[in-house]
Design a protein around this nucleic acid. Structure first.
Length: 214
DNA sequence: CCCGTGATTTAT
DNA sequence: TAAATCACGGGG
């Protein structure tokens, strides 16, 4: 008996980025399940959006999978040591995608910790310590990839069919509990660097970094 | 603040 | 070919 898969890929990047909050990202490695609740995302629109790898219809070997149909993975390698995981949004052939920036770990925490090179102390009696450990596991786009063993070998994976990488349906997050702000790390994007296309569950402890004050 | 690290892209 | 770039993270 398995959970129903998330399948609303038709929303476009911005709405998909919001809809993915609260959904469960699942990775299966050697029969073991690693999973977490998506708590932070960013929308990359393609077209005029200079923050997007597919800006101006730019299409190269690296970003080819951005042009696959919605629900496919776009995974790239950056800074010589990090991977980032995106999910392609419909409509297809527009190069729009959602970067998954942080999850709250649910299953396989010990495995995630091991892959992150961290010591895992399960069931800490102190909530503050437990939260701090949980946050360290996967609160950032490259941390998340390390924790879930996501790399370029999964680039182009079809999340609607894959048994090793997919999204399970979970209750949607109410709009009023979603915060938005400028995307992280795109100073080269001109006016687009300020566009409020970063989304997160308000006040969630596993967010990669704070949002600028209003 | 600074810097590692190397694939990818762009400029000659 | 060579140089610049980079949707980051860890350590002062």
């Amino acid at each position: 008996m398995s959970a129903r898969r998330f399948d609303r890929w038709h929303l476009g990047a911005e709405r998909l980025a919001r809809a993915l909050l609260g959904q469960t990202l699942v990775r299966v490695v050697r029969g073991r399940r690693l999973a977490g609740r998506i708590v932070e995302t960013e929308a990359y629109l393609g077209g005029d959006d200079l923050g997007s790898h597919s800006a101006g219809g730019r299409r190269t070997l690296r970003n080819e999978s951005m042009f696959l149909p919605g629900g496919h993975a776009y995974i790239y390698f950056v800074y010589g040591m990090h991977h980032c995981f995106n999910i392609v949004a419909s409509p297809m052939n527009t190069g729009c995608a959602v970067l998954v920036r942080a999850i709250e770990p649910i299953d396989g925490c010990a495995g995630m910790a091991k892959r992150r090179g961290l010591a895992w102390l399960p069931g800490s009696r102190h909530a503050a310590i437990e939260t701090k450990l949980l946050r360290a596991l996967a609160s950032g786009p490259a941390r998340l990839c390390a924790a879930l063993a996501i790399d370029r070998r999964l680039d182009g994976e079809d999340l609607t069919k894959s048994k090793r990488l997919f999204i399970e349906r979970a209750p949607a997050v109410d709009s009023r509990r979603i915060v938005r702000g400028a995307r992280v790390g795109i100073p080269y994007a001109g006016k687009w660097q300020h566009a409020a296309l970063r989304f997160a569950i308000a006040d969630h402890p596993c967010i990669s970094r704070p949002f600028a004050a209003p």
